[in-house]
Design a protein around this nucleic acid. Structure first.
Lengths: 232, 232
DNA sequence: CGCGAGCTTGACGTTGTTCAACTAGAGTGG
DNA sequence: CCACTCTAGTTGAACAACGTCAAGCTCGCG
């Protein structure tokens, strides 16, 4: 069990606090801080589940998470993979009362559950904060949508290239993390069969675009990936 | 030419004004109104173009529009089809400085161009307005995303069924409009070739799910479309 | 050593795109 | 009033892409 008396991380150095307190006084922030809960999640654990009521926002201090749409028969679909530090709502729709997607830890994660109502009240009072939160939220949406556009009119090798680029630029670049995703996860992101994902990755491997070392993926030729992404 | 001295529609009965003035005083709204421009668009006309700078929001009084992603070689992709009255931003990302999508009239449209900065300033000052705008904006996003999820793991007949349901429920139901879309547009929405869209539609037609009368589409069996949508 | 989970590969059938030919209607000019 | 052209719709055949299935592999763990 986690010892709730000693915090996992220090609120004084918290980026979320820094962002929020640009617009909200420390006094106003304090009740939000006090109502928040620090948690640690292991790889594969579900942080919140599709269909449940959304009462808290998640501030992802550290780690990598995925937003997934769980359909029947276990065929999940990954909408986005996000690295902390970042504020995440119910699939970044913090206005909704229900989580429309599930949030699952891809790597070990340190998160802070923030009371949705308290934060929203503060944000409505200080429009600039709401705006800042919206701006950040929309970014992720847009990335999702462009991933889907890619998916809509590209073949699998183009989509895999897109995913590698996306993950490289947004998650793994300049990071302490290693590029480790299961083949199944890559397939769920590219919306293809895992066999197809495997074949495409090993094709890229043979062509020297990437290097597969066990489960690690190393990108060698980002330029070529871009051209593959472009031509589809 | 449009005679700018006589407005196309009356600001006093405008829904956008009604919504906004729930949160903003009439005095504050007046400069926004004065800065806005009323326009009429014919079928097929581009209201704003992907890549251009986003200076105005669009309030769609009446008519139907589509958000499209224009890639090279003329292969467009439809992200959403929306019926007025509704507030539309630069692809509903009114925080962005660039239009990430194009907005095109599907039917004759009456719109009002609203100065983005003025409205945003008012919304930031009155957080509740910003929140209301965000909530509405996010709805469309969500619909888009679920359309893409459908697209990601369903076959064409499931996707076409989804589109017919979506258009019926969100655009054409209880409306003065007739269900008229070109086959090409349906294909661009379903992300398939127009031949495939045609074949699928005529299959539905033969099975009695829908009736094709020239360019009109009439839905006969919504229940069956739901089951086709579900099984993929 | 055995077992299971994840990974990998190839064969095969289905789905969907591309291409080509044909049809119907609408607009244009002689 | 009749070619003509242009666009949208339609259909079928050939081919490529992709998913499914089945088999074998590797690695880690008990």
């Amino acid at each position: 069990m986690i010892d709730q008396t000693t915090p996992l991380f220090d609120c004084n150095t918290c980026l979320f606090r820094l962002l929020t307190c640009q617009y909200v006084s420390a006094d106003e922030f304090e009740p939000i801080r006090q109502a928040s809960i620090q948690l640690h999640f292991k790889k594969g654990e579900t942080i919140f589940k599709q269909g449940t009521k959304s009462t808290h926002l998640v501030f992802l201090h550290k780690g990598i998470v995925k937003f997934i749409d769980e359909v029947d028969s276990g065929k999940d679909f990954i909408l986005a993979i996000v690295k902390g530090p970042k504020l995440l709502g119910a699939s970044n729709l913090f206005f909704k009362e229900t989580n429309v997607l599930s949030l699952v830890a891809v790597e070990e994660c340190d998160i802070c559950m923030i009371d949705q109502k308290l934060l929203l009240n503060a944000a409505v009072k200080h429009g600039e904060l709401l705006l800042a939160m919206c701006e950040r939220s929309i970014e992720m949406f847009q990335a999702s949508i462009f991933n889907f556009i890619s998916l809509a009119h590209k073949q699998v090798h183009g989509r895999i290239a897109d995913i590698l680029i996306y993950l490289w630029e947004n998650v793994y670049k300049d990071s302490e993390y290693e590029f480790i995703l299961s083949r199944k996860e890559i397939a769920e992101f590219a919306a293809c069969s895992h066999e197809n994902a495997i074949t495409t990755l090993s094709k890229f491997n043979k062509e020297g675009l990437i290097t597969l070392k066990g489960k690690k993926i190393i990108i060698n030729d980002l330029e070529k990936l871009y051209t593959i992404s472009k031509i589809g």
